[in-house]
Design a protein around this nucleic acid. Structure first.
Lengths: 107, 107
DNA sequence: AAAAGTACTTTTTAACGAAAAGTATATAGT
DNA sequence: ACTATATACTTTTCGTTAAAAAGTACTTTT
């Protein structure tokens, strides 16, 4: 067992953990968009294994937070939804992962 | 920006993330107990900056999951609560941190 | 003896996530 | 032509949860 003084993680303040990204489903969405920048709903659905209902609500939350932009259009007379990572989203995701990396360094 | 194929985190299955530990308040409790093995309520309260109400409910949840043991006794006529990390708790925390480290490696 | 403090637990409230149900349009079969 | 199935979603429902507030029991202080 490690000694208490070695531990950095204990003093991480939970207030600073972005709960919008912390939820695994949304983390997955954000991680995908972080790498690809924009994706349509079908691709994201396959990547995340979420249900349509969950994808809709989680992306709505990310949109409300200003982390993604949702663009709806018709392609060949069919609805088509595009998710685009915003600058704020990119920044938020980066500070989240940075923080998490730091938290788990101690273990 | 990194390329999609480099990304390992995207394919982490969210189902395997232990939600009991994932909640920041409980993660903090678990992290503390992981290093010190057992603590009383007052010490844990100070370490975590939680309210008494939150500490009580979160520890109850950890107890229900079998991750900690809660021992109540009287010391000098006053109630005294001790939290002890169980073997399951230690194992669960270790696999959680291992998983998280792996997830955030890609970023 | 009353007030204030300690160490909590329980209740309430509001938000959340997951699943189910619903919607609108398109295409395919009969 | 028309019914059925499929696609691409959104909205609603429901159970769970976290956070805050309120409550409890006892003790110490004034």
């Amino acid at each position: 067992m490690k000694k208490l003084k070695d531990n950095k993680a204990i003093n991480i303040s939970i207030e600073k953990i972005d709960k919008v990204i912390h939820e695994p489903a949304r983390m997955k969405i954000m991680a995908n968009l972080y790498f690809v920048e924009s994706m349509d709903a079908i691709f994201l659905l396959r990547q995340t294994n979420l249900t349509w209902g969950n994808l809709a609500t989680h992306t709505k939350k990310l949109e409300a937070a200003g982390y993604i932009e949702v663009k709806k259009e018709f392609i060949k007379r069919k609805p088509h939804t595009m998710f685009i990572l915003t600058k704020e989203g990119r920044d938020a995701f980066e500070s989240y992962t940075k923080r998490m990396k730091h938290v788990f360094e101690g273990f």
